[in-house]
């Protein structure tokens, strides 16, 4: 379905700059890293619960939208990521059980923290029950925050249309697909319509390929003439460029991914602000959190930022 009537969830650059997270003292690069981290979690969990790519894509868009409205300091990245993949699985007609999602996130947590893997996660344990209650609660939060507009349109179908029109060779098609999937880790999906993102991907593809394999007719950019693309596209390209750099700096192998993301340059710069967040977070936790969380045991124990600092202090 082509959504037209309600395809309205877009943010301006100013809005993104003054995001709720910023008001809680999380700076831009930290927010970017947290966004990428959340998307990595979604992608990995999606593969583990055997979902198709479109579900992960939907979940990532939901994730970005949510954090345009709410702060990373107030909502735990991991739990929101878990809720996003769960909700997206329902929206994309391939529902997964809450238990399944919780188990997978628990396992990912254990692996990342080098903890002994619990082969049997008791679903009568308090830990499990709390996670489940939280998952359901967060889902409602998510829906409410988006005013129940939970449709998502992906650039993929536009891309496959465009490159078919441009008669792109098959190897570049895979490249385009990769770019489209990677673009979901950036905030592109909450800034531009998916057609625009698609055009950006195609243009990027064209710029990357040394030989002029894309048959763009003389006179330049045909897609732009249709009126779907304007100066935004240039923007778009730039953002994708940046993303490419980001992802290149991360080692790709599974386990190391998180640590790499955490240790990336961005983090060291933001030490001071992160420290502040941690304080704030702790205070909030003391007040509101019913469960006494120990960072290690569960998906959402403590915040990302808190954990990073701890690990960083220990010198791991």
């Amino acid at each position: 379905m082509n959504y037209t009537a309600i395809d309205t969830f877009y943010m301006t650059d100013e809005q993104l700059k003054n995001s709720p997270s910023r008001k809680d003292g999380i700076d831009e690069s930290t927010e970017t890293t947290l966004r990428i981290y959340g998307c990595v979690l979604i992608q990995e969990s999606g593969i583990l619960v055997k979902l198709i790519q479109s579900v992960m894509a939907t979940a990532q868009v939901l994730f970005h939208r949510f954090y345009c409205k709410k702060s990373f300091a107030r909502f735990n990245v991991k739990r929101v990521a878990a809720t996003c993949i769960w909700l997206a699985s329902k929206l994309e007609e391939t529902p997964r059980k809450a238990r399944h999602v919780i188990l997978v996130f628990n396992r990912m947590e254990c692996r990342r923290g080098n903890l002994p893997i619990e082969h049997h996660f008791d679903n009568r344990s308090d830990n499990y029950k709390n996670l489940k209650v939280d998952l359901i609660e967060k889902e409602r939060h998510l829906l409410k925050e988006m005013g129940f507009i939970c449709h998502v349109e992906h650039p993929h179908k536009f891309i496959s249309n465009y490159i078919a029109t441009l008669e792109t060779p098959p190897d570049l098609r895979q490249e385009a697909w990769n770019l489209a999937n990677d673009s979901l880790r950036t905030t592109l999906c909450v800034r531009f319509r998916s057609e625009v993102v698609a055009c950006g991907v195609v243009l990027q593809l064209h710029a990357d390929s040394k030989s002029p394999c894309l048959r763009i007719p003389p006179g330049g950019r045909p897609l732009m003439r249709e009126g779907t693309v304007n100066d935004e596209t240039v923007h778009n390209e730039l953002a994708l460029d940046r993303l490419n750099d980001d992802t290149k700096s991360l080692p790709i192998d599974g386990e190391a991914r998180e640590d790499a993301a955490l240790k990336s340059k961005a983090y060291h710069k933001t030490e001071a602000t992160a420290e502040k967040n941690k304080e704030k977070e702790r205070k909030r936790e003391r007040e509101t959190e019913k469960l006494k969380v120990r960072d290690r045991d569960q998906i959402g124990g403590g915040t990302m930022t808190g954990k990073v600092i701890e690990r960083w202090r220990k010198g791991t």
Partner: peptide, 22 residues
Amino acid sequence: RIGQQKEGVNFTALREIKLLKE
């Protein structure tokens, strides 16, 4: 009812909202 629902917001309700909004 979603209070007692084990699997969160009802699947069919989600479908209905998602499609009818458009």
